[in-house]
Simulated scan of single mutants.
Amino acid sequence: MMSERLHRVQTWLRTRWLGRIVVNGLDSFLRLDMFDRSMTIAAQFFTSVFPILILLATWAASRDTHEIADAMGIPDETRSVLEDAIQGSGSASFGAVGVVIVLASATSLSRALIRAYMAIWAAPKPKSGLGSAWRWLAAVLVLTLALVAVRAASEPFDIHPLREALPLIATVTLNLAVALFVPWVLLAGEVRPRMLAPGAVLFALLMLTVRPATAAWLPNALEVSADRYGPIGVAFTYLACLYTASLCFLATAVLGQVIATDEGTFGQWIRRTRATKTEDGIAHSA
Rank of each mutant, 00 (worst) to 15 (best):
E155V: 04
A200Y: 08
P124H: 04
R115Y: 01
W121P: 04
L174G: 02
A122W: 00
L208A: 04
V178A: 09
W136H: 09
A197I: 07
S132T: 03
P124K: 03
W134P: 01
A138H: 02
L206S: 14
P193A: 06
L166G: 12
V172A: 15
R194L: 10
T173P: 07
T171P: 02
A112D: 11
L143E: 13
A123S: 14
R151F: 10
A188G: 07
V191D: 09
F181H: 00
L143Q: 15
L137K: 02
L109K: 02
L137D: 00
P156T: 02
V210I: 13
L137V: 05
K127D: 05
I169M: 12
A112Q: 12
L196N: 13
W136N: 08
L143K: 05
P183N: 06
W134S: 07
V150W: 02
R163G: 10
L113M: 14
G189V: 00
L196K: 14
A200P: 10
L186A: 05
S132M: 00
A112S: 15
A179D: 10
T173E: 01
F181D: 01
S128T: 12
P167D: 10
P156K: 08
L145R: 06
L206W: 07
A138P: 09
R115V: 00
T144Y: 08
L166R: 13
L113C: 09
V142T: 12
A133H: 12
W136E: 10
A146Y: 14
V142D: 06
G189Q: 02
L202V: 08
L174N: 01
A165Q: 15
L141Y: 01
R163W: 01
L186D: 03
I120M: 07
N175E: 08
R163C: 08
E164A: 13
A138R: 04
L130F: 14
S110I: 00
A123R: 00
R115E: 12
A152D: 14
A133F: 13
A116P: 02
L145N: 06
R192C: 00
A153T: 12
A138I: 00
R111Q: 05
M195H: 15
A179H: 14
T209A: 15
G129F: 04
L202N: 12
V191Q: 09
V185I: 11
